[in-house]
């Protein structure tokens, strides 16, 4: 992954166009195709992942649902056969009460307004409400489901994504400090749980201190996490 250059909305990205003449190219968020032209639709650094994926890593706090994303949501209301869940997107998401492990029409999951769930986006379309599920294709819960206790806070979408990069040193650095449990949604919402409230708040401060760290500085900031947690 390299950060080569910045693009602004409307910029043509000719490097991708050239590449697309010979092989297939995956255009991620922030890039649009207009016939044979590739145009940026967001402002930020253009990212590239081998072999052929491109996207714009812009700063954003508003989540735009995309199929397959893992998100944190807060149950807002029961509405007939579905729960309405706030995932920070423009529209409230829905989750069917059958989309939980071992749920049946008679045996509904015990969810109440205010509960926190970790779910996968099943359906994301500009014209309809996003739909969530808490089971995988085998009907198993896996890592999804209700989150008990803990502490919840919001951050930028970039921070959530940065923590989830495969080689991100932050979570490992925190692990050296104390045992904890975490759920990071790509919708810029994080839930953490440690043994004591003091530890939990330390974690929250440490994670939020990474907000302004770029790809390059992150390792340096992670070295200082201990200090942040103790203050």
């Amino acid at each position: 992954m390299t950060s080569s250059n910045f693009v602004m909305p409307g910029d043509r990205v000719s490097s991708i166009e050239d590449l697309a003449k010979t092989k297939r190219v995956i255009l991620g968020p922030g890039l649009r195709r207009l016939d044979d032209k590739v145009v940026a639709s967001k402002a930020g650094p253009l990212r590239h992942k081998e072999p052929n994926t491109f996207w714009v890593d812009n700063y954003q706090r508003r989540y735009v649902p995309a199929r397959g994303d893992l998100v944190l949501g807060i149950v807002r209301a029961k509405a007939g056969d579905v729960y309405r869940v706030d995932i920070g997107s423009a529209d409230v998401a829905t989750i069917s009460y059958l989309a939980f492990e071992a749920a049946t029409k008679k045996n509904r999951p015990d969810l109440n307004p205010g509960d926190m769930i970790y779910a996968r986006v099943l359906n994301a379309n500009a014209d309809i409400e996003p739909e969530l599920v808490c089971v995988n294709s085998n009907g198993k819960r896996g890592k999804l489901g209700v989150l008990q206790d803990g502490f919840f806070f919001k951050c930028s979408l970039n921070l959530g994504r940065m923590l989830l990069r495969e080689n991100c040193p932050a979570l490992g650095a925190l692990n050296e400090e104390l045992p904890y449990e975490i759920a990071v949604g790509v919708n810029g919402r994080i839930w953490v749980k440690a043994h004591t409230p003091r530890d939990t708040l330390g974690l929250v401060n440490a994670i939020l201190s990474l907000e302004n760290a770029g790809y390059a500085e992150i390792e340096k900031v992670c070295g200082n996490l201990t200090e942040v947690m103790q203050t």
């Binding site: 996207w55 199929r67 990069r165 045992p179 749980k193």
Partner: peptide, 23 residues
């Protein structure tokens, strides 16, 4: 061109539900 609207798939992000040291 293949359009992929999800950051998680583009960047190859890991699942965000983690626990450490027996939590």
């Amino acid at each position: 061109f293949i359009i992929e609207p999800s950051y998680s798939i583009c960047e190859g992000l890991i699942d965000g539900r983690l626990s450490f040291r027996g939590m």
